[in-house]
Amino acid sequence: MSALPRLSAIFLAAITTLVAVLLYSPLFVPIVSSFFTISHGNVDWSSPTLATYVALAENHDILAALRTTLIVGVCTVVLSVVSGTLLALYYHSRRSGRSLLQFIIFLPFLMPPIISGLALLIFFREIGLERSLLTVVIGHTVFVLAIVYRTVLMRLQSMSRTLVEASYDLGATGWQTFWRIILPNLSSAMVGGAILAFALSFDETMITILVTGTQSTLPVRLWAMMRLGFSPDINALVALILMFTVLLCVLAARFLIPRQVATERT
């Protein structure tokens, strides 16, 4: 591989850099510009400031939206981790209907969110459920369930079947085997899945707009702010959400990378 001719190596590096800059630099613009003041829609590059962040911290609407987002996120995580793990265990136990079940779980994740959102909206109206944070949590859970389910199922499938057999063989009951062997071996996958679920719930906009009641989550709030015009604290908000999401992804990766990496060190 290293025998790549020098010229083509330079060419490859140049292309890679160009693509990376074109694709990813827009992400950094709001972060950088959030540290400068904006007047008449233009960034004033001459005076760095934290004023936008101060403005953000004083914006009670934003803070309320943040609290809503966190409540929805936590509820979604709890619901999706519990049900995703149960569904993965059901699928893994090779009982009937597993393929259909898996298809249904993946459907909302693959469908356009606006379709999922509309379907939920119609459903909630039909059964007479008022739009509220509860409907948002349900919407988010339906959406992120596939991620948790998939993460847990993959860990379950990579777990040697003999672990469970060994546990029974040593005299454990089914209940003991579940709590002392299966669950501990799934825990890091469950934490990883939970973080991903939280990140997805945190950013979800389309379904939320359709099924929320009076309270709005952070992305929905951001959407509303954009419609009223571009204010400087939007930059700060985007920057914060970006950083938070990156942090979550790094965390999730730590829990989801196979254990073998740790093994090879020794």
Partner: peptide, 8 residues
Amino acid sequence: FQDYALFP
């Protein structure tokens, strides 16, 4: 067991 099946 053949693969030892130790609880990791």
